[in-house]
């Protein structure tokens, strides 16, 4: 069953912002990554799913129900963590969490304590006094305390230290094992790769591709930078799978996708001074996707 079905969703505001004709589905029980640079339309899509904003055209359904018509009903089973967390001042963490829990007609006390323990959050502090990272933790506990069936996360990791990020990811995996579906939006490829089964890549308001993470890693792109003793002929690395080839003096750089042995053989054929092999950043992958389209 599809937990989220998005069909031809379009929303424009301002000049360059918004989304156009977006469609993808999130299946029950999967951790779905939603990745793209800032301003690509991730938040716009998520805000439509939460009926915070209304689409110009197209539709979105959650649990098989239209996400605007049945918004209050659907939201009983959604946990949402926004990218920027701001909560009512003058409230203690505990008061805010209780207020949040009071919207769901079940006892969330036990789960609240468990979550606070895992995230190492002091319930008796005032929210005003919390650091950004700790506010984020409040947001995480707030989003999960009613044990939602669908968890929507909009760039959730900013402000969390690596250790907490680890705890948080473990927590999400656990929720996922218990049956929760997760929509995870991010602009950081590595964290999506770590967590997600499938991923939708969005750029400038359009879905570029929806792929299994395993596919993406099989077709891993590598960024090569080779420094040689003598300048190379510009065509030396011109083999299939090489993109964005650039030669600057003794330094040659390119992105490669394919059998890595082919490149290594070529590299072994010249005398090198230094070698860098890196994961390409998102922009470079996007560039590749755009090339493919053109």
């Amino acid at each position: 069953m599809d937990v989220i079905e998005i069909k031809n969703l379009t929303k424009t505001y301002g000049k360059a912002r918004g989304i156009s004709n977006i469609s993808f589905n999130v299946e029950e029980g999967e951790i779905f990554g939603f990745i793209g640079p800032n301003g690509a339309g991730k938040s716009t899509t998520i805000r439509i799913l939460l009926s915070l904003i209304y689409p110009d055209s197209g539709s979105a359904a959650i649990f098989g129900k239209d996400c605007i018509q049945f918004a209050p009903e659907i939201k009983k089973n959604i946990g949402y963590l926004p990218s920027e967390v701001f909560y009512y001042d003058n409230m203690k963490v505990k008061e805010l969490l209780n207020y949040s829990a009071s919207f769901y007609k079940k006892d969330c006390n036990k789960r609240m304590k468990e979550l606070a323990d895992i995230m190492d959050l002091d319930l008796n502090k005032k929210i005003d006094d919390l650091s950004l990272g700790n506010k984020k933790k409040v947001g995480i506990v707030q989003g999960l305390l009613h044990e939602p069936k669908l968890i929507i996360l909009d760039e959730p990791t900013s402000g969390l230290d690596p250790l907490m990020q680890q705890n948080f990811f473990e927590l999400l995996k656990e929720e996922n094992k218990k049956g929760a579906t997760i929509l995870f939006s991010s602009h950081i490829l590595s964290e999506v790769q770590r967590l997600c089964n499938r991923v939708a890549i969005i750029k400038e308001g359009k879905i570029v591709t929806v792929e299994k993470i395993s596919n993406l890693t099989e077709n891993t792109y590598k960024k090569f930078k080779v420094e040689t003793k003598a300048p190379l002929d510009a065509t030396y690395f011109q083999i299939s799978g090489v993109h964005n080839l650039e030669v600057k003096g003794n330094v040659t750089s390119f992105i490669f996708k394919g059998n890595i042995n082919d490149v290594m053989k070529k590299i072994a054929g010249v005398e090198i001074m230094n070698l860098w092999i890196e994961e390409p950043d998102l922009e470079e992958i996007f560039m590749h996707y755009y090339e493919k389209e053109a």
């Binding site: 939460l50 915070l52 209050p72 009903e73 939201k75 949402y80 909560y87 919207f103």
Partner: peptide, 8 residues
């Protein structure tokens, strides 16, 4: 965002 994503 907090209030409007609650089931109300």
């Amino acid at each position: 965002d907090f209030l409007l994503t609650k089931p109300v």
